[in-house]
Simulated scan of single mutants.
Amino acid sequence: MNLTLQDIAWHRSVGQVIDALDHPGFWLRLVRLLEQYVAFDSWVAFLFSEHRPLVYAESPGSDGGLDPLFQDYLMGLYLLDPFYIASRETPASGLVQLADVAPECFERTDYYQRYFRLNVVADEVQYNVALDAGRTLCLSLGSRSRFAGEQIALLHLLQPWVLATMRQRFRFEHDVDEVTPAPAWQNHLAEGFGHLETPLTARELEVGRMLLSGCSSKEIGRKLAISSETVRVHRKHIYRKLGIKSQSELFALFLKAQR
């Protein structure tokens, strides 16, 4: 069997990642290995669950400090993240692309315009490991440009050993039970809009979340098993009760309710 120098370097690097499974620098070592084969601009390793996302490691901000946009994400914007929503609705292990989970109108949402394209920039993929109790361990890779088909194919090729090492690494991470549970979406908004004379119903809150995440009326109707016209009626009631006239105003109220 003929091994090239590149083959030898690859096996050495994988061995180093495995050797670091119980070390604090595991995620950085894994990311640096992936960077040798696929270019990306940001990354974060975290856990999705019924709690707020729990961050295990992340790429530093431009000034080396905490990214204020990402802190907004952790406070509540994650509720609009298509990757988070997909992990809660249909948890599964594997490589997930933005195109796999983004709603029809995602790029027209305030979440996309005011957070995603500024923080993630253009494209995102995630390695997901579905765990027990509705938890998903994630390694997210963000890029300033669209991932090319060749890059996605390579990430799929690397998937088996990446997911295997992530699953083994989870044994050495802090348990999610140490984190204070986040209130459900309905409670987030219900608390923020507690002054309303006529509170939003649970269905109106759910329609509002789906509108903000980028779902079209048809998508909402399909997911909730109601007609598109009923969706539009719910949206009209939401706007009337909140005293607003646009989805941008709804997004502003959503942000206020998270803080």
Rank of each mutant, 00 (worst) to 15 (best):
G192K: 14
D132R: 15
L154W: 07
T136M: 09
R114G: 04
V129Y: 09
L118S: 00
L118A: 01
L98P: 11
G194K: 12
P103G: 09
R135Q: 15
Y111E: 06
L211N: 04
S143D: 08
Q113P: 00
P160C: 01
R144I: 00
E219W: 04
I220Q: 04
V179S: 11
L158D: 02
Q186S: 14
R222N: 07
A99F: 07
I226R: 03
R169N: 13
C138E: 08
V176Q: 13
L141D: 05
L212N: 02
R167P: 12
E173S: 05
L189T: 06
Q168P: 10
R117W: 01
I152G: 11
R167K: 15
S140R: 13
D132C: 13
R135C: 14
V207F: 14
Y127V: 02
V120W: 01
A153H: 12
N128H: 10
Y112D: 01
R222F: 04
L189E: 06
I226Q: 02
M166W: 08
Y115F: 15
G214I: 00
E204K: 13
D123K: 06
V179G: 04
G221V: 00
M166V: 09
P160F: 02
V207C: 15
K218I: 02
S227R: 11
L98N: 10
S227V: 07
P103Q: 07
M210H: 05
Y115Q: 04
T180V: 12
F106Y: 15
E191F: 12
Q186W: 07
